Amino acid sequence: MPERNIEFGKYGARGLKGHEAVARQLDDLAGYIATPVTARRGLTARLNYLTRSTHALDAARAAGLTVTGRTLRAWQAGTRTPSRKNLAVIEQAYRTVRRENVARYLLARLNRDGRGTRVEIHPLNQSQVDRPRQRAMEFRTMNVRRWDRIVGAWAAGDERELDEAWVDQVVDLGSQWGQYEYVTNIGFAA
Rank of each mutant, 00 (worst) to 15 (best):
M1Y: 04
E3C: 08
N5I: 10
I6P: 00
K10N: 04
Y11P: 00
Y11C: 04
G12E: 13
G12P: 12
G15F: 02
L16Q: 15
K17Q: 15
E20R: 14
E20C: 10
V22W: 07
A23C: 04
R24I: 05
R24T: 11
D28T: 03
L29T: 06
G31R: 04
G31S: 09
I33A: 10
P36D: 11
P36A: 03
V37D: 03
T38Y: 09
T38S: 15
A39W: 06
A39F: 13
R40C: 00
R40T: 10
R40S: 09
L43K: 09
L43H: 08
L43D: 08
L43N: 05
T44E: 14
A45M: 12
L50H: 09
T51H: 05
R52V: 12
H55Y: 05
A56N: 13
D58H: 11
A59I: 00
A60T: 11
R61L: 02
L65S: 08
T66D: 15
V67P: 03
T68P: 02
L72Q: 04
A77L: 04
G78D: 00
T81S: 10
T81H: 04
S83Q: 06
R84H: 05
R84Q: 10
L87W: 02
L87K: 06
A88D: 11
V89G: 01
I90Q: 05
I90F: 03
Y94A: 06
Y94M: 06
R95S: 01
T96W: 01
V97W: 05
V97I: 09
E100T: 12
A103Q: 13
A103M: 12
Y105V: 14
L107C: 11
A108S: 14
R109N: 10
R112K: 14
G114T: 05
R115M: 11
G116Q: 10
G116R: 08
R118D: 02
E120Q: 11
I121K: 07
I121N: 01
P123R: 03
P123E: 02
N125K: 01
Q126F: 01
R131D: 06
R133C: 03
A136G: 06
F139D: 05
T141M: 10
M142H: 02
M142T: 12
N143I: 15
V144G: 03
R145H: 07
R145A: 06
D148S: 15
I150C: 06
G152N: 14
G152E: 07
W154N: 06
D158K: 01
E159P: 00
D163T: 04
E164V: 00
A165P: 10
W166N: 01
D168E: 13
G174H: 05
S175G: 03
S175V: 05
Q176H: 09
Q176A: 07
Q176F: 07
W177D: 02
E181C: 05
E181L: 14
V183E: 02
T184G: 13
N185H: 11
I186C: 02
A189P: 00
A189Q: 13
A190S: 12
A190T: 12
